[in-house]
Design a protein around this nucleic acid. Structure first.
Lengths: 208, 208
DNA sequence: TAGATTGTTAATCGATTAACAATC
DNA sequence: TAGATTGTTAATCGATTAACAATC
């Protein structure tokens, strides 16, 4: 792995990874960048370059890369090898869906619990995950050194929730609300912006 | 509105739009690109350029753009002005959450119904939206000329669902599963890829 | 009038694509 | 050996940033 992997490359890596895991299960040992490119409708050169940025070992000319090696390299690059604990705030429909989704384990993400201000929800469990009150959640965050918060609260409360989480020590926020969040420089926000996706889809459909 | 608006600009427009609607409610008449840039931590020149690509009217030097005019221009550009009907397939937790989300109306999206192969769900309603069987859904798609499909089914079924929808006449797919979908050239797919977001977040957090 | 903000043209920057030597 | 695929250096392309004249 070299330094400064472009954002675009990082976004493509999870796709490659899923594909590699699939073919690894099919006992395929080696893969060339050309094969990956064909599968995803990308140019072979692009894939080649992406892999060269990530791969710790050199690919073998005429043969390609050892699949299992590549999987390991991508996982290390994306930090999937060390589990990150997260707390989810706002146990509505979307929040419940995310709490119940088992697939995050594959991405190095472990949602340890939920938090909600609704007293009727506090103390209950969703898919085996406890729902905490803000007070108890704050203690949990500090005790477990949880650095990542997932916000699925109503948009109107998003900023307050965000401030609360950062105050408790969080350094990363995964924001599922349409609200624009203001955070200090040392905190990272990733917006899961459906409006953005929908805008792209809308424009793409319009063109036809 | 000029031709060929860059993808990046399109992705920023919904953010601007939400902000503009907010300040429009506060009786603010004019806005400058500088003010928008400050709010979103973007460079003023970038915002200026984005707006110039979208705005039908010229901004007034020293004053800025008429907020309501700008709102209208962005909505037209993003196609929010004409409602698009959509059918959602896979009424699990995530599917139910999306069916219940009222905010899509603001983005020109109207989810008319759900579809599920589970007979226990067929005929029920989620937030006032009927759940159809595949057979009945196919008739509905054709009768209403629904062009947009939202896939929240299990990943293993995603490709089959996708093929089914395209076969029924759909031209756009909003894919919430991690599966990679193969589609004909005249069909547009937008992946709502949580793995991608998580990868970025993970790498950003790692750097600290 | 002076000055803030616009629209537009030019420069920079970074990602993608092309070209090509190296190698199993 | 011949040829497919790699790694790397150079060219292209498009988005962002800078510069500056126009204008209310």
């Amino acid at each position: 792995m070299k330094t400064a992997i472009p954002r675009e490359t990082i976004q493509r890596l999870p796709k490659y990874l899923a594909y590699l895991k699939e073919i690894s299960g099919q006992q395929i040992e080696y893969i060339s960048s050309l094969t990956i490119a064909e599968y995803f409708n990308l140019t072979p050169i692009l894939v080649k370059k992406d892999l060269s940025k990530v791969s710790s070992i050199v690919g073998r000319p005429r043969v390609g890369f050892l699949v299992d090696n590549l999987i390991k390299d991508i996982e290390i690059c994306l930090g999937y090898d060390n589990m990150k604990d997260a707390l989810l705030v706002g146990v509505g429909k979307l929040g419940s869906a995310l709490l119940s989704y088992g697939g995050f384990q594959n991405y190095g993400l472990n949602i340890v619990a939920g938090m909600d201000s609704n007293p009727n929800l506090v103390g209950t469990e969703v898919s085996g995950k406890k729902i905490f009150s803000p007070e108890n959640a704050e203690a949990l965050i500090k005790r477990m050194h949880i650095k990542l918060g997932i916000i699925t609260a109503p948009a109107a409360e998003a900023q307050a929730v965000c401030d609360f989480l950062i105050n408790a020590g969080m350094k990363g926020i995964w924001n599922f609300t349409p609200a624009h969040l203001k955070v200090p420089d040392d905190v990272v926000v990733k917006n899961e912006n459906m409006a953005e996706s929908l805008a792209l889809l809308s424009v793409m459909l319009q063109k036809r």
